[in-house]
Write a protein that binds this DNA or RNA. Sequence first.
RNA 1: GCCGGGAUGGCGGAAUUGGUAGACGCGCCAGAUUCAAAAUCUGGUGAUGGAAACAUCGUGUGGGUUCGACCCCCACUCCCGGCACCA
Length: 819
Amino acid sequence: MDYSPQSLETQRQSRWTADKRFEALHKRKPNQDTYYALAMLPYPSGELHMGHVRNYTLSDVIARYHWQKGFAVFHPMGWDAFGLPAENAAIKHGLPPYQWTLENIDRMRSQLKRLGFALDWSAELATCEPSYYRWEQWLFLKLLERGLAYKQESWVNWDPVDQTVLANEQVVDGCGWRSGAPVEQKKIAQWFFKITDYADQLLNDLDQLDAWPEQVRDMQRNWIGHSQGSTIHFSVDNYKNPLSVYTTRPDTLMGVSFIGIAADHPLAIQAADKNPELKTFCDACRNNSVAERDQATMNKEGKNTGYTAIHPLTQKTIPIWITNYVLMSYGEGAVMGVPAHDERDHAFALRYALPIPPVILPSDDSKWDYTEAAYTGSGSLINSGDFNGLNIEAAKESISKALLDLGCAELTTQYRLRDWGISRQRYWGTPIPIIYCDDCGAVPVPESDLPVVLPTDIVPTGEGSPLTSHEEFLAAACPKCQKPARRETDTMDTFVESSWYYARYCCAQYQDGMLNDDAKEWTPVNQYVGGVEHAVMHLLYARFFHKVLRDLGLLNSDEPFTQLLTQGMVCKDGAKMSKSKGNVVTPIPLIEKYGADTVRFFIIFAGPPQQDMLWSDAGVDGAHRFLKRLWSLGHALAELKISSIDSNIDHDNLDANSKQLRHEAHSIIAQAKTDMDKQQFNTVASAGMKLLNQLSKNDSYANLNLAVVRESMQGLLSLLSPITPHICEELWELLQLPGDILTTAWLEPDPKAMQQDSLEYAIQINGKLRARMQQPVDANKEILEKAALDHPDVERYLADKTIRRVIVVPKRLVNIVVS
RNA sequence: GCCGGGAUGGCGGAAUUGGUAGACGCGCCAGAUUCAAAAUCUGGUGAUGGAAACAUCGUGUGGGUUCGACCCCCACUCCCGGCACCA
């Protein structure tokens, strides 16, 4: 009987579809526990690649393992269908985004189905459909009502030739990707979500997420960037307001040698007003990239404004400089420059020959060379008058208090986190439900008028924003005064759609609201699986939305994803596999050659889930060979009619070979179970190979107890079936094993089978392995020590040496320390 | 630049979390089968020296802690991801 995965797998898949096998929402039995497994929403690029295969195989293994454990497992799939690539395809091939997207979805859906994932397709959704985004628009209105959505000016990359806003990705070496024109920065009014209102919760609730990788929580903590400091006000000559700076180092106040302000700071604007040189500099700063990575690597430059601030404690005057490294968007848009104890201020002071007065004496007493670098470590204060001798912490407190008493500072908390800008000047996204009226201003679209439908007859050209010239879309009556008005033409960031889809899956067909009680019942997601590249932004936005939806009464938990598995990327040519990088390997040719089970097995076997993997075809053959061997073993056992034999096993009275097989099988299964629970699936696959090796060691089963053989085979199929479900289900039925393989629990390892009488112990001399010995498992330290010292191979190492110590580690080794 | 991660045979990786490094595969070598090849099966395979027994070296680099370090600590190198408009 040849193994022909093509027909076998497609037949199984048809049966699964016909039986609605994985539709947990409908199939759940009363009182059955629920389990929600979810892989991150894919962008429908048109072709599945190995990164997708890895992601969905992982979530599938987890989903199927939980079916085996008795849960009703909800494992849905859908499409993150808005976004830039559809517009790029339109520019390149003239294809309308809607049509292009739907075709891609169809292709990817059929490819996913061919992989045999245990997905509930009845909950499928695509975010570009009005039935989905109307509820996003509804939510926008709710955010607006609650003051969580607002409009404000901010900077964008502007292509002066194409007259369009560019994504960071579309800026190549400072120039537009299509036009090649140098990119300018332009300030336009945009919509924001007030995620900063939830900063505390987003930070504090990370502590609850103990089933998230610590590294992801760290990244989120750092991104939110909670800091405790002081806002200090300096009075400034010839300027109406005091100049406020935010600092986390009030202890270094006596070391201030300049004040740095952003080019957008009101004082900078006032200073530039009468000074062309300053104006030129500010304009240049504004045309700098706003990307943090560019800001951070830029040369620190500045111009003296000629204005001076008064030091609140010493009354000395301090020059005020406009600098390119202070950002208006963080803190007060101004910093106190302490070159001796801040690296950026230090670089700036060196460049402009500003004084670098030290005020912290390094605690290790070493001579610090301030012409070389800033000292940012611990120490005590010097050159600080009354505060000399205090350590940094005490000084922070004393100086803050002194300033507080003078009324020129407050204690403040700052976050690095900024509000979420959701406006995109693009066509292919969710329209923002706002109407602009000359008389009434920005008026929300009434709920009853939702959805604001995005026209599908547009083919973007890359010039301008298409909606701004689409008269049919633009024209609207003001909801307040009914006069002719214009629609908002900005669409929403696609991160908005992916921030709540996991809840909508639970009630994808629900027409009368955004979410219903099913969403409360099935959320939070028990297990979320996706790439580390989403560790910060997507996961933070989704966490924010979850809390908002909770506060609106639509959900009843604090966090969306209880457990998180961040899979490593599948890389090729030194970069993550993605269509935009042009380095994709698609699974379809491999499936045609080897079948889906082989591809699934291989991608799981290739390495631990969290680790990046370099794609290589080498090794797929081995996975296929293994499944062929499994297939022929299954058929060999079927011929022995193992289904009809008595299943009772009396372990103690088994023959030696059967006892040995049973020992191996139970040990391997126990190990596989541990690994499965640790989500170390690659070693579960190894365990399957090991067990098959054990089972096929004997050419003939004549001298083995067949009940033991069947039990081992059942264990093997159980542990493999989450990874390679088609072949396992086929063999399970062929061998007439009991129950449905999908929902049958794993073999419970028998402690008796796993017991061993004796173990191999290592004998080390000075930590080097010199000999091995076989000793009883329960041998005590004295026996082990004596046995080691008496071991014939050990003698020669002990000749004319003195034994100084003997370390005995039960069940492992004896280490003899000699000199 | 900042934040996070990684580095183990020719290759992917394993190692009970401080206790016998290299499980399980790939590749390669040899043998069986075959007219021959493919497929399949059996055995071998970290490096160096040795006929062998065995010895020495060996987990990115340099140091440290320990009876004992892939694992813990310190300092580095290189690679990957994220850095707010790619998703």
